[in-house]
Deep mutational scan, measured.
Amino acid sequence: MEVVDPQQLGMFTEGELMSVGMDTFIHRIDSTEVIYQPRRKRAKLIGKYLMGDLLGEGSYGKVKEVLDSETLCRRAVKILKKKKLRRIPNGEANVKKEIQLLRRLRHKNVIQLVDVLYNEEKQKMYMVMEYCVCGMQEMLDSVPEKRFPVCQAHGYFCQLIDGLEYLHSQGIVHKDIKPGNLLLTTGGTLKISDLGVAEALHPFAADDTCRTSQGSPAFQPPEIANGLDTFSGFKVDIWSAGVTLYNITTGLYPFEGDNIYKLFENIGKGSYAIPGDCGPPLSDLLKGMLEYEPAKRFSIRQIRQHSWFRKKHPPAEAPVPIPPSPDTKDRWRSMTVVPYLEDLHGADEDEDLFDIEDDIIYTQDFTVPGQVPEEEASHNGQRRGLPKAVCMNGTEAAQLSTKSRAEGRAPNPARKACSASSKIRRLSACKQQ
């Protein structure tokens, strides 16, 4: 084909351009004929944790799935940006308080904090938690009735009371019990989460009196709706648990309003109706937990002794299953770290194939690490110290990083047969305790 000078094309009309061969290198194709290559998922490591896909996002930050490269346990990490926390009232204080509380709590029905990582340079905090497959609110939203069968609701409620009793025994008032803060594992274990607005009572406090509340409006008791200066913290949790039980068994809320002012007005009056299909035992329990006067409201001991709580409820309806993943529609909620794991395991070791967030990740503290002497050669063979940054567990980050890069360049065919977990650990520049 004859090559045409581009400067001469402006002298031709459209018809003349076609005659000189423009149609031979300008093609129009339908979008259905285009085959897009999927974007390669680059592996990203935060300390010893391999990052997966997004699980959810809230006002405080994002939650992603991660894999512990040492234990191969599935975890969830809450990623918090200090810049964003400053824009939220009491944001930083709530996060630090939640970390302090979770560090000393150990119960099967309370979410466990596994690790805390802090990135000084990017001003990011990573709260590594045990993995929960789904939230209770997500399960309720997945069915038209917006409720659980009585047998399933009873099982979840009993676990909620177990976890709540443990928190109260530790002198902690949750203040925000609701389905949105109750998570579930694949085995059906309920976990109380989000202790950001919780309050730890003084060890020598005479009672459970509280003065502040930041919980969700629909789950607040009349004493808070009416603006009382002080109130019983434990009875606030009992009320919120009662509203939660009402919601998961009926699909409704005892109090509603077009806006928060109308909602608080209705809560302050204390008038509500219980659907007739709840039955006398459940209705009596709800009335005891939603008692207007805090002094007359049920205690956890009274809830445990109630006939509806103690009764064994046979399954009359099919239980609400864990819904498919909202993004991938995966009904099994498979591990989202698998594509990243395959990338590390299947590809040659190259620095361009993975990302390490930083050479140094500070753990379990908000301060910069200490310094240790770096050896410097002298005339008599002895070495003197220069400062060298280290990880919180004493690992020399720069030395590990250099060693990792040197190993990656060394030709050794046997290394390709290593397991995925050992490869992740070798790529991680800074081991965590």
Rank of each mutant, 00 (worst) to 15 (best):
I322G: 00
P89A: 07
L282I: 04
L105V: 04
F366P: 15
H168C: 01
Q170A: 05
P314Y: 05
A318P: 14
I46R: 05
P275V: 03
E291I: 08
Q100R: 10
S334D: 12
K82I: 10
I361T: 14
E65L: 02
V390W: 02
E357G: 12
N247M: 03
S193E: 13
A316V: 04
E396D: 12
S69E: 09
R39W: 08
K416M: 15
T186P: 13
F264Y: 06
G233W: 08
C132R: 00
A397D: 10
D350T: 12
D229Y: 02
K124N: 09
E293H: 06
D176Y: 00
S59L: 14
L183G: 02
G215V: 04
P280Q: 11
D258F: 04
E376I: 13
F366Y: 09
G288R: 05
P179L: 02
R86A: 09
E265L: 08
D162W: 15
R86G: 10
Q371E: 09
Y340I: 02
D352W: 04
K122E: 05
T212H: 14
M51P: 15
K416P: 15
V372M: 03
A397K: 05
Q37M: 08
D115E: 09
E375G: 12
N380G: 14
L282W: 02
C151T: 06
R104L: 11
L182G: 02
A410L: 11
F234V: 08
E120G: 09
T32R: 10
E70L: 06
P314G: 06
L160Q: 00
K82Q: 15
I192F: 07
Q159D: 07
E374V: 04
N109H: 00
T71N: 05
G91H: 02
R310I: 14
E265F: 06
A200V: 05
K329I: 09
K431C: 14
T363G: 14
P149Y: 00
S31T: 12
T395V: 06
S216R: 00
V236S: 11
P314D: 12
M139K: 11
T189L: 09
N109M: 03
G227A: 01
M22R: 15
L400Y: 13
S378R: 08
Q382K: 07
T32I: 04
T32Y: 03
S283D: 09
E396F: 11
Q382E: 08
P222D: 00
S271T: 08
L101Q: 05
Y261S: 03
H27P: 10
R39T: 02
T71W: 07
K48I: 10
L183M: 00
E130T: 10
Q123I: 03
E396G: 13
D194G: 00
N226T: 09
G15V: 07
P144D: 12
G276R: 10
Y253C: 02
P144N: 13
I274D: 05
M125H: 04
E223T: 01
V20I: 09
K423V: 09
Y340V: 14
Q371I: 13
W332V: 14
Q112T: 09
I99C: 14
V110M: 02
G268Q: 09
E65D: 10
A429Y: 12
S422A: 12
Q37C: 01
I79G: 02
R331H: 00
D176I: 00
V133W: 02
Q37D: 11
L113V: 02
G408R: 14
C132A: 12
P314V: 08
F231S: 02
H202T: 05
A200T: 06
P387Y: 05
I248Q: 09
T367V: 14
I260L: 09
A241S: 04
P280D: 12
V110D: 02
